[in-house]
């Protein structure tokens, strides 16, 4: 049932983030808490379980974004798979390394979101990209990763098959 708790945690964090955005006025950037959880899933969860959790979290992000197009669902699963693949080449154990790992995935997630949005709309003004916003969002996500790391260790399910197997799906 840990995957339900993971999705519930994502829902809670997204809600908190929406309130924080409202009060702190993150007009340029935000804290990507879902990517933090997806990054942890990529490190610990089994592939199907992690993909389903990522799918659900992407769906939550899609719904909470106010403009559900399916993009964030797709990106959540994609980032999970890419993170899982990258985990084969890096050793992520502690908080700091996890934060760096999550920051990398967050930057990738943001760039992919911008790219797909641009491809869909062909309107450069619609994506509102800024290097400063990207850096700030990545840094804030890294900070959130450091803070959430102990909680994620307790909540996020750990896949038994994730030991030393190499590969995207296995």
């Amino acid at each position: 049932m840990k995957w339900i708790a993971t999705v519930g945690l994502a829902l809670l964090l997204l809600t908190v983030e929406s309130v924080a955005v409202k009060y702190l006025g993150f007009s340029v950037t935000r804290i990507d808490v879902t990517v933090t959880i997806i990054a942890f899933l990529a490190l610990r969860a089994a592939v199907v379980q992690g993909a389903v959790c990522s799918f659900l979290m992407g769906y939550l992000l899609d719904v909470m974004s106010g403009r559900p197009t399916g993009l964030y669902v797709f990106l959540a699963v994609l980032v999970f798979l890419l993170g899982r693949f990258a985990n084969n080449f890096v050793d992520v154990g502690g908080r700091a390394s996890f934060a760096v790992f999550a920051m990398g995935l967050d930057a990738l997630h943001m760039l992919l979101a911008l790219s797909f949005t641009w491809m869909a709309s062909r309107d450069a003004g619609a994506i509102g990209f800024s290097i400063g916003g990207l850096v700030l969002q990545v840094c804030l996500t890294g900070l959130a990763s450091v803070l959430l790391f102990p909680l994620l260790k307790k909540v996020v399910p750990e896949g038994s098959e994730r030991t030393s197997e190499i590969g995207l799906l296995r």
């Binding site: 993909a51 197009t69 399916g70």
Partner: peptide, 16 residues
């Protein structure tokens, strides 16, 4: 899980 939402996005990416 990967392709269904991607397909939906391609189909309705500009119209939520």
């Amino acid at each position: 899980l990967l392709l269904v939402p991607f397909g939906l996005f391609l189909a309705h990416g500009t119209v939520p």
